[in-house]
Computed example of a mutant assay.
Amino acid sequence: MRTVGVRELKAHLSRVLREVQSGETVLVTDRGRVIAELRQPGLASSNLSPVEQKLAELAAKGKLKLAEKPWVGYTPSPVEVPPGTLQAMIDDMRDER
């Protein structure tokens, strides 16, 4: 599921409709608030996982904003540190404030 603003929807309606036709659910937003949901006819929201349903509900109420695009290109760091090291570093930085 992804979100698209009204302006982007107007500019790229054909592309968004092709995504919907291929099974994607698109939430339409206006100033950060979800105002509509585009999906294939007959597809109930039960196709969403419980987490996706809750996120869509919160987005519709304006309590959160869904990511516009998924973040791609993430690769985990090859550096390994002993457990607790990062928390110790964060604690040290907070004490310096």
Rank of each mutant, 00 (worst) to 15 (best):
R33V: 13
Q87N: 09
Q53V: 02
A44V: 03
P41N: 10
G32C: 03
Q40A: 13
D30F: 09
V51L: 15
I35D: 12
Q53A: 12
P82A: 12
V51F: 10
R39P: 04
L55E: 14
Q53S: 12
S14E: 09
G42Y: 11
G73W: 04
R94N: 10
S49V: 03
T85P: 01
L43I: 10
G23Y: 05
P78C: 02
V72I: 04
R18Q: 15
E8L: 08
Q53K: 13
P78K: 14
L13D: 06
V26L: 08
G23S: 06
L43P: 00
T85M: 07
W71E: 12
E24Y: 04
S49A: 11
S49Y: 06
L17K: 11
A59E: 01
A60F: 03
M93V: 07
E24M: 05
G73D: 14
K10F: 12
V72F: 06
A11F: 01
V34L: 14
M93Y: 13
K69W: 01
Y74R: 06
D95N: 08
L64I: 14
D92W: 12
P70R: 09
R18A: 15
T29M: 05
R15Y: 05
L48R: 05
V34D: 05
S45Q: 14
S77C: 03
L43M: 09
L86C: 03
L55S: 11
G42S: 08
V6I: 15
P50V: 04
K61V: 01
Q87P: 01
V51M: 14
G42F: 07
A67K: 13
Q53D: 10
A59Y: 00
E24Q: 10
G32S: 07
L13Y: 09
M93P: 00
S14N: 09
G42N: 12
E96W: 06
P82V: 05
P82N: 01
P82F: 00
G84F: 07
Y74Q: 03
Q87T: 07
M1S: 13
L64R: 08
M89I: 11
T3V: 14
R18M: 08
A56S: 13
D30A: 10
A56N: 12
L17F: 11
P70C: 04
E57H: 09
E37K: 14
G73K: 08
V4Y: 04
